[in-house]
Design a protein around this nucleic acid. Structure first.
Length: 120
DNA sequence: CAAATGACGGGGT
DNA sequence: AACCCCGCCATTT
């Protein structure tokens, strides 16, 4: 499988993440059938054309933090986009336990404490 | 072709 | 929790 194939898979996997939910770079890659692919996911997003209309803002680090450094302009942009679809972002971080998209994940434990995702 | 670079992840301190 | 450190792997230098 070529590198661009991987990128396409990443993009496809990302389109499956519903609004109001998020995924980590690593899990996104895993969904695309790529192991150890966190950095590939990054490349796939960075290479994505601006008009790709991908929900790139739904991708966060495994610990729930925004990937961009706080001073980066896209950091604010991402926070805004996430909030606009109901995701609670506190100090540049999201509670993965509450907002991670678990479709097809094996870790059965789901908890639904805080703010339920609402599209507003 | 060798070396550096990331929108990373997981483990250890 | 906040760091630091090291492994990862396509892309860029």
């Amino acid at each position: 499988m070529t590198a661009s194939d991987q990128h396409r898979r990443i993009h496809a996997a990302l389109r499956d993440i519903p609004a109001g939910r998020v995924v980590s770079y690593g899990r996104l890659a895993a969904r695309a059938g790529i192991v150890r692919g966190a950095r590939i996911a990054v490349a796939a997003l960075r290479h994505a054309p601006d008009d790709a209309a991908l929900p790139w803002h739904r991708v966060l680090r495994a610990d729930g933090r925004i990937g961009f450094p706080p001073d980066h302009p896209l950091h604010a942009e991402q926070v805004h986009r996430l909030r606009s679809e109901g995701v609670v972002v506190t100090k540049g971080r999201v509670r993965m336990s509450n907002f991670a998209d678990q479709a097809h994940d094996s870790d059965g434990l789901l908890l639904q404490a805080d703010e339920p995702p609402s599209t507003n």
